[in-house]
Design a protein around this nucleic acid. Structure first.
Lengths: 133, 133
DNA sequence: TTCTTATTGAGAACTCATCTCAATATAGGC
DNA sequence: GCCTATATTGAGATGAGTTCTCAATAAGAA
């Protein structure tokens, strides 16, 4: 009963636009970027493409402090966290064995199961804090 | 130029309703609870009260995976994190020196300043996973 | 009590995101 | 290459959550 996936230029355009951005971007930003680059792509399609890419683990997805969903293409398939610049969106991928172990231990200790965790850091990167002076 | 804060029964009602709930609740849930308890309080007022209490650090505030803002009254004034039950909203407060040190070190290492971090865990608590069987 | 003005509340407005459904375009079969 | 079934698209409607507007209200000082 699995749906057959078709390849459309829209999905590919989203993938490329994401790949060309080192920063986390919102679906709306991505849509604007694509439109201004000449692609007549619909906003709904961008959302759908992002959701499908996220499900395939081709992109990282996180919630900004403002409540928006942010996306970034992600080559490394394994679990990791981010340090994100509030100003320019630039992100550093973080390995965090320490944190993984800590969360697992704490969850077990309190009898919680099916535990997922959100570990993200937001700050101002060196370039942005330099340029704002 | 500081605004003078006035004490209203509405703000107090929100504070009490929050204090009586051991779980994280959304603004809307809190409003429904207050209304069903007989308080003719406006939704906008609940949002404003929560925002102002959050600013005074009287309540904890976090984003649920679904993108809602959740609130819980918080006596302990110091920084901490949570392990929250997806099903009933029950939360365990977590001390995490390990994590604090790790985030500080990582931020410094990458030249980020004014760093805040989000560390929250969502799972199913022992009671909820037992009652769902 | 009176006056100033912070606060309230009903609804409008806003944002982000998802859904609807007719039109389109892809991929497999001929 | 052409046809056909159907996955996908896109414009706009819809929905959820939150904030804003502004006239009416009420807290606190004089």
């Amino acid at each position: 009963m699995a749906l057959i996936k078709r390849n459309t230029w829209q999905r590919e355009a989203v993938r490329k636009a994401l790949a060309s951005s080192p920063s986390f971007v919102s679906a709306q930003q991505l849509h604007a970027k694509l439109e201004s680059a000449g692609s007549a792509i619909g906003l709904a399609t961008v959302y759908r493409a992002l959701a499908s890419l996220a499900e395939m683990n081709e992109v990282d997805c996180l919630n900004s402090p403002e409540g928006e969903q942010l996306y970034r293409s992600c080559a490394s398939g394994h679990h990791h966290h981010h340090l994100i610049c509030r100003s320019c969106g630039k992100a550093v991928e973080l390995e965090a064995d320490t944190v993984e172990k800590w969360t697992a231990a704490v969850a077990k200790q309190h009898g919680f199961t099916e535990v997922s965790h959100v570990v993200d850091m937001f700050g101002t990167c060196a370039e942005c804090s330099a340029s704002s002076e």
